[in-house]
Simulated assay, not measured.
Amino acid sequence: MNQAHEKTPSKLTLLAILSALMAFTSLSIDIYLPAMPAMQSDLQGHVELTITSFLIGFSIAQLIWGPISDRIGRKKPLFIGMVLFVIGSVGCALSQTIDQIIFWRVFQALGACTAPMLARAMVRDLYQRIEAAQMLSTLMLIMAVAPILGPLIGGQILKLSSWHVIFWLLAVIGMIMFVCIFRLPETHNPKIQQQDQPIKHAFLNYGALLKNWQFMRYVLALTAFYVAAYTFIVGSPLVYISYYHIDSQHYGWLFGLNIMGVMMISLINKKLVRRIALYKLLKWATTVSMCAMLTLVYLFYTQHLNLVHLVIFLLIFFSMNGIVAATSVAAALDIVPQMAGSASALIGSMQYGSGIISSLLLTFGKTNSPEAMIMIMAIFAALSAIVSWVPHREPK
């Protein structure tokens, strides 16, 4: 563990707070998925734009917060982020039109993006390459509860009240997290904050990062994988509910099955990273994901695809996220420890910005069958695997 200049809390406390921060993205999106039909009816607009606008704000804002955190530390941006998140959540709860909620979702994202981005940076501040991968696997194991509970909680709220209450709940969660941040140490080493330089110099880090192929290889592999993953997240409600006629109340359980797979693989990955190099784990995980999706493409075009096949192979694909996310992020950040904040911001921006690509591609290719979803997923799963297998020098 690296030395921090504040006393580090117990590992259990650190795990709990960092996991909650890492879960902010999933919670901010998944909790209101069951409410989207009701919101569509009330607001009379394209409610899917509330996800797109959130991801746009989430992706762009990280690029600003990352260099700032490398200059002023991790905790101050987290505090500011939680305040912005609470204000945005209240704005969403009070919205009466689709334009209003789209605006406040962007505002909400400006704060929410600090949570997972700086949680990753703090892990890199505190832990070295292998330990960081183990810690990220543990965080993914815990944070995976959010995508399971989110839709279930949102569905229960709708039974008792309106969708507005969901956003009031998010505001309360933001306030709780604001208090919890006081328990975190300031992990960024003040000796490398370069306080004598203008802050604009910190933004020049992005140029250096984009030119660093060793770093970008991991980022591109992760981004391509997440384009496929978000294609599933955005496209699966239509496929499961409209095409296969799954009851909307049961959709959450099918969605949660994939998250259980991520949790199981994350648990296994904690042990694998001690024995197998991170880049090798990434190669094989992306290859397994690609093979799963290519199998679905084959089954679809040979007219043998059924719901059981779809559930099984999507489970295989999505479970690999337990390896892909942890190994790619840990390996990438280990290459540029002096720019961990900026690097984490660039990773997060591309990772979550991938959802914008997914939603746009599904809009153009939307059909009443799984075809568009599995084709997009297969293409980007293959791209992720190809990038992972490109030869390059690895650190020992």
Rank of each mutant, 00 (worst) to 15 (best):
I166E: 00
I72W: 02
V262R: 08
A340T: 09
P185M: 13
S89Y: 06
A285M: 06
F79A: 12
Y230N: 09
Y244G: 10
P151I: 03
D334N: 15
E186Y: 08
L21K: 12
V288H: 14
T223Y: 08
I265Y: 01
S344W: 02
M143W: 03
E186Q: 07
I31N: 02
T114F: 07
P34W: 00
S162N: 13
I259H: 01
L49E: 00
V172S: 14
F317T: 02
A115S: 15
L158W: 04
L27S: 09
M375H: 01
L170W: 05
D70L: 14
A343E: 04
G57Y: 01
Y244A: 06
Y32L: 02
I80Y: 07
I87Q: 10
L18V: 07
A144G: 15
L78V: 07
S26W: 10
R105K: 11
F79D: 11
N321I: 01
V288M: 15
L12T: 05
L14M: 14
P151T: 04
A326C: 02
A221D: 07
A326D: 00
L94S: 12
Y127S: 10
V297E: 03
M260L: 15
S69K: 12
P151N: 10
A343F: 03
W168E: 14
P391I: 03
Y127Q: 04
F255E: 10
V106F: 05
S342F: 09
T8N: 04
I56M: 00
V387A: 03
T8S: 08
